[in-house]
């Protein structure tokens, strides 16, 4: 007796978004089915992993994560180059942490200079991540957007209370905007509508659903992504955007990756445990639809990259 395989065809499709220039462009999204459901739909583009690079020495990073980058960490340009040359990064995420008023409060001009230099030194597409603090976020992302004009970078992030300046900058300089909302289907949709209402093309929006790390809310992100994706495939045009998940920053600050095995012998080798923590978080998010994962540890990235390859086999 043959089994009739129940195939689901959806009316909706995730928008394909190309990041980068004609020379180095990478396309994500474009799928018309649930994550890795090759048996019933088309998934033209694989999920991409971006290496997180900070604009300042990451003194608060664990040695475990700093060790693979060594001396390169002292110079963000060298760091970005190492990610690309040494670890074959497909994409780099420049985190402009030092511009935050509570940190070094570096100027928007300084950040823009760095963006310009990084773009000229590496040949992979770039994600530019602002400091988050509202006023400064606008200044920094506007200047950096200008510095990267025409390079089709991803600019992170616009939020509901603060999206206009950032969207306008992405509009003016030809970038892609990240729309960040706190783990909620309706808020995600609403922000996409607000941004689109500024005549910004929906095909240049990426959703940041807000990532909870493993053990720290991962299941909330997982389910909200599943719900957004189901609604998008069901035909909701204002949710048919790819997802970006900032994994590394959530994973590498939790207790379970920081405590040494001499304190918790049953937890096992701290370094390997941390790598597993980041990889497990990333894999779970891939299964709920992540299109871009921003990560830190090269070994975790390697594990996830290999898994993406296996999940993309038809």
């Amino acid at each position: 007796m043959e089994i009739e395989i129940p195939i689901k065809k959806w009316s909706g499709k995730i928008r394909a978004v190309t990041i980068g220039t004609e020379k180095n462009g990478i396309t994500i999204g474009g799928e018309d089915t649930l994550p890795f459901h090759h048996f019933e739909g088309s998934i033209p583009n694989k999920p991409i992993i971006a290496f997180e690079v900070q604009d300042i020495y990451p003194s608060d990073w664990l040695d475990v994560v700093k060790e693979p980058y060594g001396e390169y960490l002292k110079n963000p340009i060298e760091w970005a180059k190492a990610a690309v040359v040494k670890y074959n990064a497909d994409m780099v995420c420049l985190n402009l942490l030092s511009t935050h008023p509570d940190r070094e409060n570096r100027s928007a001009d300084e950040a823009a200079e760095l963006v310009k230099n990084i773009i000229s030194e590496i040949d992979v597409p770039l994600i530019i991540k602002g400091p988050g603090s509202s006023e400064k976020q606008n200044q920094v992302l506007n200047k950096c957007g200008e510095a990267g004009a025409g390079k089709r970078c991803i600019i992170a992030s616009a939020v509901e209370d603060n999206y206009k300046t950032i969207t306008a900058a992405c509009q003016a300089y030809g970038h892609i905007v990240v729309a960040e909302t706190p783990i909620d289907v309706n808020l995600a949709k609403q922000l996409n509508i607000l941004i689109s209402d500024m005549n910004f093309p929906p095909g240049r929006i990426i959703i940041d659903p807000l990532t909870g790390g493993l053990g720290y809310g991962l299941e909330y992100t997982y389910s909200v992504m599943e719900r957004i994706r189901l609604q998008a495939l069901g035909g909701d045009a204002m949710l048919q955007m790819p997802f970006i998940c900032f994994v590394g920053q959530e994973v590498w600050r939790v207790k379970e990756v920081k405590v040494d095995e001499s304190v918790e012998p049953l937890w096992g080798d701290m370094k390997k445990r941390g790598i597993c923590w980041e990889a497990a978080t990333a894999i779970t998010l891939l299964l709920s639809g992540a299109d871009i994962l921003v990560m830190r540890h090269p070994e975790a990235i390697n594990i996830v990259r290999k898994s993406v390859g296996r999940l993309m086999e038809k």
Binding site: L214, G215, L266, W267, G268, M270, R273, C276, W277, A280
Partner: peptide
Amino acid sequence: DWEYLPLLTL
């Protein structure tokens, strides 16, 4: 050893 905690937490 180091895989137990992440898998059980997941």
